[in-house]
Write a protein that binds this DNA or RNA. Sequence first.
DNA 1: TGGCGAATTGATGATTCCTTCAATCGGTAG
DNA 2: CTACCGATTGAAGGAATCATCAATTCGCCA
Lengths: 119, 119
Amino acid sequence: MKPVTVPLYQAKAEFFRMLGHPVRIRVLELLSDGPMPVRELLAQIEVERSNLSQQLAVLRRSGIVASVREADTVVYSLAGPDVAELLRAARRILTELITGQQDLLAELREADTTTSSAE
Amino acid sequence: MKPVTVPLYQAKAEFFRMLGHPVRIRVLELLSDGPMPVRELLAQIEVERSNLSQQLAVLRRSGIVASVREADTVVYSLAGPDVAELLRAARRILTELITGQQDLLAELREADTTTSSAE
DNA sequence: TGGCGAATTGATGATTCCTTCAATCGGTAG
DNA sequence: CTACCGATTGAAGGAATCATCAATTCGCCA
């Protein structure tokens, strides 16, 4: 029956890669509070309409969001409840990592005051 | 003091992008069970030594792993305990997504038996 | 000191991803 | 029917990522 048969670690990698874009992250976070029409997403995120559509298409293809047409607008929603939890876990780790990096920076300050990791 | 100042959603995106590679995922999963020398990682993962080093460098730069030299080998470990939890959350969502996709496929089987979403 | 194994780094071509613009679809109102 | 608005799609150029090869570092030992 050939059931897709992709190694699990590769599926995971594709999943994370799907998350690896600022606009897509913002969309998922906004949808964490409930369904939202494209018009509203467009108002909250600074991005061109066409670009937003591209990113929404990526999310749709992966199956993490669903879209429904209502009259003249399209409404998006999360496909499952665990997504919000994943984003929380990610935030926890990020906080941890950033804190760790700031500790490192504090140690390095005496050597180079113009240190920046944001290029 | 200019504390890195990267929008949070962008930091998150970079974080997920950092996770978005099969070899890097496998490394993190192996390290979830405890520190491990490069030699062992190399034995468990099918990848060239040089390529593994490249991926380890990516993980190191992000701060999610740390490396220590011991005699003639280098030992890697996770930088924090939350990483394993994140991987678990990801697995949950993936299972959910794949299950959903299989439901969809089941519905579609009657229309096209060669359906494949693994290109 | 010279050489060896383990690991990393630098550079390069190939692939993939991202942004943008133009064209298209779907629905609604005039 | 035509015009318009919201949203999606297709295509193309530019940027980032990946795999691979050669060169280098680091520690050990003969």
